[in-house]
C-alpha cells in the first residue's frame, strides 16, 4: 500500500511540478528580458483564473469561448501593466522596482478579494472529476490535461526562443539592450511582449489549477512556490525553471509522504522546498543552471 502511495505522490509531484515549471518559466521570461523580479507572478494566476471563472460562471459563456477570451484579456492586461506601471521605472534602482511588484501583488490580491470575495469558488465541471486509472495509478483528468498543457507550453517556449523572430529579439535584449537596439529591435516592444506572454501563460496555469482546487486567493501562493523553483534552477535559465519546478513539485510530495509515514509533524510539505532551497544555494549560489559567463582567455 505504502509503495503505491509513494508512486502516486511521485506522479502528483511531477504533474504539479510541471505546472510550477510553467509559472517559473513565465517568471524567468520577465526577469531575463526586462530585469524585473516579478513578485506579482502568482497574482497573474489569480487574475487569470478569476477572469475565466467570471466569464464562464457569471457571464454564462461556454468554456471554450470564455477561455480564449481570458487569454485576450491577459494579453491586454500584461501589456497595460508594463506600459503604465513598469515602463516609467526603467533605469530606476532594482529595489524600487521590487517594491513596486510587491505592491502590485498585494494590490491584486486585495482587489480580487474585494470583487470576488474570499471564498473558494469551484469551477464548473469541464472535465469529468472521476479519476482515470493509468498503470494502476489514480489520476484526475484535469491533472492529465494540465500535464498535456504544460508540455505543450514548454515545447512552444522552446520553439519561440529558438526560431521565432520575436524570440530571438528577446534573447538579444536579455543579452544586452544596447546591442538589441543597434539591431533595430524595439526594446519597449520586447518588454511589453514579455509581460504579455508571461501574463497569458500564467493565467493558463491559473485556470488549470483553479479547475482542480477551485478558485481562491490561495492561487497566489503558487507565485511564492515558484521562487524556490526559479532560484534552484538559476534565475535566468528557462530549462532551469522547468527542472526547478519539477524538483520542488516532487520534493513537496515526498515531504508529505515522509511526514505522513514517519514524522507526523504536519504541513512539512509547505516548508520543505524552502529548506532545500537554502541547502542548494549554499552549495551552488547561482542555482543549478545559472548563466555561466562566456570568457575567452
Amino acid at each position: 500500500m505504502s509503495g503505491s502511495l509513494f508512486l502516486q505522490l511521485l506522479v502528483n509531484g511531477l504533474i504539479v511540478g510541471m505546472l510550477y515549471g510553467v509559472v517559473a518559466m513565465c517568471f524567468v521570461l520577465i526577469y531575463k528580458s526586462t530585469q524585473v523580479v516579478n513578485f506579482a507572478q502568482g497574482e497573474f494566476l489569480l487574475i487569470g483564473a478569476w477572469t475565466c471563472w467570471w466569464l464562464v460562471v457569471d457571464a454564462g459563456l461556454p468554456f471554450w469561448f470564455g477561455f480564449p477570451l481570458t487569454f485576450l484579456f491577459m494579453l491586454a492586461f500584461g501589456v497595460a501593466l508594463q506600459m503604465v506601471v513598469l515602463r516609467p521605472l526603467i533605469g530606476e534602482p532594482i529595489i524600487s522596482v521590487i517594491m513596486v511588484t510587491i505592491g502590485l501583488s498585494i494590490f491584486f490580491q486585495a482587489i480580487t478579494k474585494w470583487i470576488f470575495g474570499a471564498d473558494v469558488e469551484p469551477f464548473p465541471e469541464i472535465f469529468p472529476v472521476k479519476s482515470v486509472d493509468i498503470f494502476g495509478l489514480q489520476v484526475q483528468p484535469a491533472y492529465l490535461m494540465s500535464l498535456v498543457v504544460s508540455i505543450a507550453i514548454m515545447i512552444g517556449f522552446a520553439w519561440f526562443f529558438k526560431y521565432s523572430r520575436m524570440g530571438l529579439a528577446m534573447r538579444a535584449t536579455a543579452f544586452n539592450q544596447q546591442v538589441a537596439q543597434s539591431l533595430g529591435i524595439s526594446v519597449k516592444a520586447v518588454f511589453a511582449t514579455a509581460w504579455a506572454i508571461s501574463a497569458m501563460v500564467s493565467a493558463l496555469a491559473g485556470v488549470v489549477v483553479g479547475m482542480v482546487n477551485g478558485v481562491s486567493g490561495a492561487l497566489s501562493f503558487f507565485g511564492i512556490k515558484v521562487f524556490p523553483a526559479v532560484i534552484v534552477g538559476g534565475l535566468d535559465s528557462i530549462v532551469g525553471a522547468i527542472v526547478g519546478g519539477l524538483i520542488i513539485g516532487v520534493l513537496e510530495n515526498m515531504a508529505e509522504y515522509v511526514d505522513g509515514q514517519w514524522l507526523q509533524i504536519g504541513n512539512l510539505y509547505t516548508v520543505a522546498p524552502f529548506y532545500v532551497l537554502i541547502v542548494i544555494l549554499m552549495v551552488k549560489p547561482y542555482g543549478l543552471f545559472g548563466t555561466k559567463k562566456i570568457e575567452r582567455v
Binding site: 530571438l168 534573447r171 543579452f175 544586452n176 544596447q178 539591431l183 529591435i185 562566456i294
Partner: peptide, 25 residues
Amino acid sequence: FQVMEGRRIVEDMTCLENLRLGAFT
C-alpha cells in the same frame, strides 16, 4: 546599421542565430 566597437555579437547565440538577428527589421 552600426557595427559597434568591440563587435558586440550576442555571445550566447550561435553564428546562424546572430545572422538571423541581423535581419530583424
